[in-house]
Amino acid sequence: MSDNELFREIDGEPMIAPKGMSLLLGVPLTDILAESARHNGQQWTLPAEWIKSGIRRSKEYQAATGRSDMHGALEYWAAREAK
């Protein structure tokens, strides 16, 4: 999986793509796309259960690697989900 499927840099800042959100949060890509479509491309707040799942996955990534960076987490979860 290439980085551009997971995030893009816009004005020098990393912006997470839907697939990247799916990996970081542990939420199916179809759910993220449906929620985004429901808000017609406007800014929206992540559901509380998605945030909890993302925190849980962040802690798991940190415990497994000793790292806390987004790019590393994307790589970690992409590799785990490819198995």
Rank of each mutant, 00 (worst) to 15 (best):
E5C: 01
R8S: 12
L23F: 10
A34Q: 09
R56H: 07
A48Q: 13
I32R: 05
H39F: 10
D31H: 15
Y61A: 06
E60R: 13
A63T: 13
R57Q: 12
M1L: 13
I55Q: 13
G26E: 03
R8Y: 01
A73N: 04
S22I: 03
H71W: 08
W50E: 07
E81I: 05
Y76T: 02
T45L: 13
A63E: 15
E13I: 08
T65N: 06
P18M: 07
L24A: 04
S58A: 15
L24M: 13
A73D: 03
S2F: 09
R56W: 05
W50I: 06
K59E: 12
Q62M: 11
D11M: 11
R67W: 02
T45P: 00
M70I: 15
R56Q: 12
D3V: 03
A17F: 02
S2D: 14
L25F: 10
K83Y: 07
S22C: 04
A79G: 06
A34L: 03
A34I: 04
T30A: 15
G20Y: 06
D69M: 04
N4K: 12
I32G: 01
A73F: 04
G41R: 03
E49K: 12
A17C: 11
W50S: 07
R57M: 09
I16A: 11
D11G: 01
N4A: 10
L74C: 08
A64W: 06
P47T: 08
K52Y: 04
T65A: 06
A63W: 09
R56V: 04
M15I: 11
E49V: 09
L24Q: 02
E60M: 08
S68G: 13
R38M: 10
G66C: 05
M21I: 09
S53M: 07
